[in-house]
Design a protein around this nucleic acid. Sequence first.
DNA 1: GTGGATGCAAAGACTTTGCAGCATC
DNA 2: GATGCTGCAAAGTCTTTGCATCCAC
Lengths: 174, 174
Amino acid sequence: MATAATSPQRPSGPSPEGPLARFREYLGRNNLRLTPERRAVLEVILSREGHFDAEELLRFLRRRRRVSRATLYRTLDHLREAGLVKVHRFGRGQALYEHVYGRQHHDHMVCNRCGGVTEFVNEEIERLQEEVCRRVGFHSTSHVMEIYGVCRSCSEQEAASASSDLHRGEPRPR
Amino acid sequence: MATAATSPQRPSGPSPEGPLARFREYLGRNNLRLTPERRAVLEVILSREGHFDAEELLRFLRRRRRVSRATLYRTLDHLREAGLVKVHRFGRGQALYEHVYGRQHHDHMVCNRCGGVTEFVNEEIERLQEEVCRRVGFHSTSHVMEIYGVCRSCSEQEAASASSDLHRGEPRPR
DNA sequence: GTGGATGCAAAGACTTTGCAGCATC
DNA sequence: GATGCTGCAAAGTCTTTGCATCCAC
């Protein structure tokens, strides 16, 4: 997990040795302080895999230390600025977070049925994106790509229930 | 404008002759009615270029017919389902809409400084996306790709003000 | 010791919903 | 004329903010 990755979209500054060092560096650079609350938020986020919302984070957080909602949101914003977490707003609904330290950049496929999120990586797409930016003089700092649709297991399930519905006149369950 | 495009991600059903026909078809299919309000929303959306939020839409809408916020949101949702508008949630903030009828699919570059949105098209990226989906059995219905960063004019401006700030000790204006 | 941080509660932004009357199919 | 639609206002959801107190540097 805590691999010393050399991510290409590291925001700025010299290369620290870990996520905490990186956070410290960001805080110092901006005249901010490392409090127990901020530390706890970072640790809990690093311990989580995949995507989580603020509420979920708060639940896990409180097992180790009480942190207010306000502080959580404030800290998440700092972590985002520090390049340690990434924010997504898949479809409607609330923001989802994921930590990106020591993780390769990846994109997402979101299933409209079950809400499941699958990650994928495609170097060629990444390369083409950079090329597009270069062409128009756009200085890219990050990007998101989300493919929406129906995942394999949901479409198999749908196919099964559709065939058993053949005697009824329903085109789509909704 | 009202080109009879053959978009690949048309949701379903036979090909209508225009956006209104397409909306009618969608409404009929779902046992819904074409009211003056819904018609007005569609027309105003088609007349707008680029990205707009609900509030902006409401302002333009009211020049021609009073439509309540509630009806606007409800109609936007129908239009999205009908494949006539697309919803974006760039960064934080509210939803932005754009109409997609007769428009080629495109992706976006969003400037973090000025908030400007630039569209671009890259067939190769599209093709690769489809390939990724096919490989994992994901049935894609739509996708978004957003590149965040600093647009050319903003970075030129920043470079200019940075060089005039050389005598001061500020690394970044914020 | 001081400027930044915290928690609380209240405000905020945006969107959705219940309901009574209205209008399309 | 029945079923779906509208506007209003209220509720909801998620997130941000003002302020008094607290604490990391």
